[in-house]
């Protein structure tokens, strides 16, 4: 029996609304993720992938079921402790980038570092390094509306990576990108995986899923397949 998993959810359900109009986005999902895994999550639209990911990212809470992260029960963490988890342990990449408007790329990447109480100089340094890593060293002063979609996604990735989180959660990170940008982003994920980080990626594209080591398939709020692919 291996030691505690990094991520473990047990029989998680998520229901939106009540009574007849209730939507069961998740109908009992259990999943264990060990540290260092690279997992792709696939499934048709509306199957509950994003809902699952939001719960894993501590952005949302399950209606029922347990979520254990790194040995602690997330439901029992205080609001501040959850904020700490979001800021330190998890890097979340949104499908829609979610950069803060009217704020430079550098400031966007600095933000999680600010919330992690890093000093100004250190923040600058790390943010610049993260932007360099995603190939945007020459775009640090640009605001989101001055960047292409691919560049914005790379800023979002840099932001997720800046704090050096152990877990990277990406909800369709390449959904808005062309083949070339997709390749670049996937290359970065490969590097991060090689670096020992845990990556969970939601995608609709098979070639994206093919880069992962494990494929989880979701359908109508349930996990219908879970296999190691490589």
């Amino acid at each position: 029996m291996a030691a505690e998993s990094l991520i473990e959810i047990r029989d998680v359900t998520k229901t939106y609304g009540q009574g007849e109009t209730a939507v069961h986005a998740l109908r009992g999902v259990s999943l264990r993720v060990e540290a260092g895994e690279y997992i792709a999550v696939m499934g048709s639209s509306g199957s509950g992938k994003s809902t699952l990911m939001n719960i894993l990212g501590c952005l949302d809470v399950p209606t029922r079921g347990e979520y254990w992260l790194d040995g602690s029960d997330v439901a029992r963490l205080s609001e501040d402790q959850q904020a700490l988890v979001r800021g330190r342990k998890i890097g979340f990449i949104f499908q829609s980038f979610n950069l803060i408007p009217r704020t430079t790329a550098l400031a966007n990447v600095e933000l999680p570092l600010t919330y992690a109480h890093l000093r100004r100089g250190e923040r600058r340094k790390r943010a610049n390094r993260a932007l360099e890593l995603v190939g945007l060293a020459d775009r640090t002063g640009h605001r989101p509306n001055e960047l292409s979609g691919g560049q914005q996604q790379r800023v979002a990735i840099a932001r997720a990576l800046a704090t050096g989180p152990r877990i990277l959660l990406a909800d369709e990170p390449t959904g808005n990108l062309d083949a070339h940008s997709t390749d670049e982003v996937l290359g970065m994920f490969d590097d991060l995986h090689a670096d020992g980080r845990t990556i969970i990626v939601i995608t609709h594209e098979h070639d994206v899923a093919a880069r992962a080591r494990r494929l989880v398939q979701v359908s109508d709020g349930r996990i219908v397949a879970d296999e190691v692919t490589r």
């Binding site: 990212g57 952005l59 501040d80 700490l84 800021g87 979610n98 408007p101 933000l111 919330y115 992690a116």
Partner: peptide, 16 residues
């Protein structure tokens, strides 16, 4: 509000 959501997702505490 969206910006607040982003900030919270990035680890901002309530009091921040």
């Amino acid at each position: 509000t969206r910006e607040i959501g982003i900030r919270k997702a990035l680890g901002a505490r309530r009091r921040t």
